[in-house]
């Protein structure tokens, strides 16, 4: 077992919140350690075009943007570790982090920037066909649907973006949304309604995914009209679920206070959680905006607050000695 590593600040997560926190913390000479997790670069690494991150006049690619953030964090002195935190113990000081590799970190402060994961409807049939015609990632799996017919379930930005992306491969894309209008950005809606390959079914929810066994294969869906209650069957080759994300909070479950909706609670206008020395930034705490640029902003705040916390901490220690 390798020896435990001491750090003033450990950042968990490698999306815009994590890397921005790292850039600020490194420049404040906190010598931060950033542990990337299972998806280095975060959710932006499974998107394509990014058009709303300021500073880039032309369209950029999500994976490229995250590569740049990682390099910037490294250049200013962040220690970036490819590992996954499997346990976090906040009951003692310093905080103790255990990683998949067996490495243990002892940290005076921690920034939680673990982000969010795609949500599922949790229908038994959806789980059964996951990976066999049911997907939550168009950019990962779109390739398998060349010339096929697919539906996208959802009505926000991710649903509309996924539908637009899928038109590159699929013969026809149908969006199924349980309301009669989209929440997505107007510019995206505009593109969607102009695309001849995309059709919309309003006021409808996915009731069941149907298909064959050996190999598992999706052949259709049952859709329920939420107004009339009528259920209709529709033959389909693929189902993309894009109903939003839920925060990745397993590490701090029962250790920090949560909002009623499951996001990590923070003090007003602050990233401070209920445990002094633990800060939260990005999609793990932001249940309102959830943008790359707001995550970056929260990451910056978290680093500045961690710096202040560590300074006060050092002061107290000196006074006690």
């Amino acid at each position: 077992m390798p020896q435990a590593i001491n750090a003033k600040l450990v950042i968990i997560g490698s999306g815009p919140a994590g890397y921005t926190a790292a850039i600020y913390a490194a420049r404040a000479m906190l010598e931060p350690v950033l542990i990337q997790g299972v998806q280095p670069g975060g959710q932006l690494t499974i998107t394509t075009d990014v058009e709303n991150y300021p500073g880039f006049a032309d369209v950029i690619q999500g994976p490229w943007l995250m590569g740049q953030m990682q390099k910037q964090a490294e250049h200013v002195g962040t220690k970036i570790v490819t590992d996954h935190v499997s346990r976090l113990d906040l009951s003692a000081r310093p905080f103790r982090l255990e990683c998949d590799s067996g490495q243990v970190y002892l940290a005076d402060s921690v920034i939680l920037a673990t982000g969010a994961q795609a949500r599922w409807l949790d229908l038994p049939s959806e789980q059964k066909f996951k990976g066999y015609g049911v997907s939550a990632c168009a950019t990962c799996d779109g390739f398998f649907y060349r010339g096929k017919n697919v539906i996208v379930v959802g009505g926000g930005n991710s649903a509309v973006e996924e539908a637009l992306f899928l038109t590159k491969f699929a013969a026809a894309v149908t969006i199924v949304h349980r309301r009669d209008h989209f929440r997505a950005e107007k510019i995206l809606q505009d593109r969607l309604f102009k695309n001849p390959k995309i059709k919309v079914i309003w006021d409808s929810a996915l009731e069941e995914v149907t298909g064959g066994e050996n190999p598992l294969k999706v052949t259709g869906v049952k859709l329920k009209n939420v107004k009339s209650g009528a259920v209709t069957a529709m033959p389909i080759d693929g189902v993309f679920i894009a109903i939003g994300h839920s925060p990745a909070t397993e590490l701090v479950k029962d250790q920090v206070e949560m909002k009623p909706n499951g996001y990590v609670a923070t003090a007003p206008n602050s990233t401070a959680t209920s445990v002094p020395g633990i800060f939260a930034a990005g999609d793990v705490t932001d249940d309102i905006y959830r943008q790359a640029v707001t995550a970056a902003g929260l990451g910056c705040m978290a680093a500045l607050e961690a710096e202040r916390f560590l300074a006060a901490h050092a002061e107290m220690r000196r006074a006690a000695e």
Binding site: K130, G131, Y132, C137, F144
Partner: peptide
């Protein structure tokens, strides 16, 4: 029937015994 990658499958004596998607 792979429609999503990564998919991992375990084969024992020619038979598919377990799979993990993602």
């Amino acid at each position: 029937g792979i429609m999503s990658i990564p998919t991992l499958m375990i084969f024992k004596k020619g038979e598919l015994s377990s799979r993990q998607v993602g």
